[in-house]
């Protein structure tokens, strides 16, 4: 029984990091109604920037964390400029946006491959102290506590920005209707840029956390997270912030438990099977967000 609780605890931590990754992913869909398939590549670059800040510049981890968030945020803004803005100006459909963001993802991955010479990097030993605590018979590492704490802080920050600042009000206005927002004097393209920055910064934070937790940083690390990020945001409902949080936690639990008690190959089949079923039964996700994109039938 302790084993189950231990796995649930681990799943909670894993789920938190997935939620962090997926929040930025879903935020862009919620505001701009496009899928940003370069999100995984932005996340990967966040991990690299964090790593190089520690290894090459010798700066402490918290500085690396902030540097990674800033850098990933800026890269994400660049993704917007290159992949999405030219299409928006033309009023292109979602298909084109997906293709161009895949293209930018490939460019970002290729640049990381060149910069890293296709090597797998690790954070130097001792970057993070290895300390374990025993609480009620469960093993909790300091690392896990810090991960959960930083996820909580970042989510609180995000919610604070979205719901308690004028930027947040503008973002939500643009999400509801770009035209109305523009009529209200909101600079829609600035808000898009800001949304991409926030999204990228969250991905960068997730990149550093994952890079430390799994002690590996390489140019392909974004892809599996992107794919699993889909599961998270579909579980929670495309575009929904609270949905992504809940979806991340559910994802972490299911993944950890199925790997522990079944097999890791089957775990992916279960998770993607779950997503497939949700799409068929409740395309708006478990927590219901927007409902669009159904075929032409009587409605």
């Amino acid at each position: 029984m302790t084993l189950v609780f231990q796995q649930i605890l681990n799943g909670f931590v894993v789920g938190g990091t997935y939620a962090l990754f997926a929040l930025g992913f879903t935020l862009i869909f919620g505001v701009l109604h496009v899928l940003n398939l370069a999100h995984g590549a932005v996340f990967m670059w966040g991990a690299f920037v964090g790593l190089f800040t520690v290894t090459s510049l010798g700066l402490p981890l918290y500085v690396a964390f902030i540097a990674a968030m800033l850098a990933a945020g800026l890269i994400s803004v660049l993704v917007d400029l290159v992949a999405f803005r030219p299409l928006r100006a033309r009023g292109s459909p979602e298909f084109a946006a997906i293709i161009s963001s895949i293209g930018v993802a490939q460019i970002l991955m290729s640049l990381a491959q060149i910069a890293s010479q296709t090597q797998v990097y690790r954070f130097p030993f001792g970057t993070f102290p290895i300390v374990f605590y025993n609480v009620l018979g469960l093993r909790i590492s300091l690392q896990q506590i810090v991960i959960v704490a930083s996820v909580v802080v970042l989510v609180a920050l995000l919610l604070g920005i979205l719901f308690a600042t004028s930027f947040g009000r503008q973002i939500r206005a643009v999400a509801i209707s770009e035209r109305t927002a523009a009529l209200l004097g909101i600079s829609v393209s600035n808000i898009h840029g800001l949304t991409f920055f926030i999204s990228g910064a969250l991905a960068g934070a997730a990149g550093v956390i994952i890079g430390i937790a799994f002690n590996s940083v390489h140019f392909l690390m974004g892809e599996p997270y992107l794919l699993r990020g889909f599961v998270v945001i579909i579980l929670g409902g495309l575009g929904s912030i609270t949905g992504a949080l809940a979806g991340g936690l559910i994802f972490g639990m299911v993944q950890t438990l199925s790997i522990a008690f079944l097999s890791s190959a089957l775990s992916d089949a279960i998770l993607f099977g779950m997503m497939f079923l949700i799409l068929l039964v409740r395309p708006s996700g478990l927590f219901g967000a927007l409902h669009r994109q159904v075929r032409v039938v009587r409605q």
Binding site: F95, I98, L238, F276, L279, P283, Q293, R295
Partner: peptide, 10 residues
């Protein structure tokens, strides 16, 4: 029954 991005993700 699905369309667009939902079809792609499924």
């Amino acid at each position: 029954r699905l369309r667009g991005v939902y079809q792609a993700i499924a």
